[in-house]
Design a protein around this nucleic acid. Structure first.
Lengths: 107, 107
DNA sequence: CCGGATCCAATCTGATACTG
DNA sequence: CAGTATCAGATTGGATCCGG
């Protein structure tokens, strides 16, 4: 599971330790289930550490490991590329779709 | 569809125009169907061009666009990161699994 | 507050067989 | 050579309910 949410978690946690609920609020559209699952996978791969504070109410913080911080940096370039070429790709898609679906007009 | 095969196609086509069958042979485990589908998506997004040569037998060449070549370069860094940290991740996984599944020994 | 468990729908993929 | 069509199976994701 490379996971469609992993990248966003890496970005959200890049600035330092962050709580479960903060992640949930910070990542648009993620469900609790997917947040938990993705965090577990990242933890399993040694990319995040999970720290449970025995307080009331409970408090769990996630923090990126050094390896994950490196990954975050290289991902940043990908994000930049995506941002720089968003319009180009959107236009390419529109053109392609216009040329390959005109049959629908026959109806 | 970011597509699990897209990256490998980008790598295989990075050196210049390449034919359908060459791609099929060069990418381990890909089916004809997935190769076709992934190429169509890349073409739709303006990342590859498709050139049909009207010869016998047919010859179709795929070539990366400039935008895709940029993408290939940034992906290269990701690949490097993955290679550098493969062992670290494998060990983290083994450790994690050992600590979270010992209940199975009760049987 | 944090997260596990279950159910269910959508999506993705491979195998196979058939064409210009 | 370079695809397309169809079908079945695996993955993935959201909704929901329950527990420490």
């Amino acid at each position: 599971m490379a996971g469609k949410w992993s990248v966003q978690i890496l970005v959200a946690a890049a600035q330092g330790p962050i709580r479960f609920t903060e992640l949930e609020r910070g990542i648009e559209g993620i469900s609790r289930r997917m947040l938990t699952l993705t965090l577990r996978n990242l933890e399993r791969d040694g990319l995040v550490t999970r720290t449970v504070h025995a307080t009331v109410p409970p408090k769990v913080e996630y923090e990126l490991t050094p390896v994950a911080l490196e990954l975050h940096q290289t991902l940043q370039r990908l994000t930049d590329w995506a941002e720089n070429n968003r319009v180009y790709i959107a236009e390419a898609r529109a053109t392609y779709d216009a040329e390959h679906q005109p049959e629908l007009l026959d109806a």
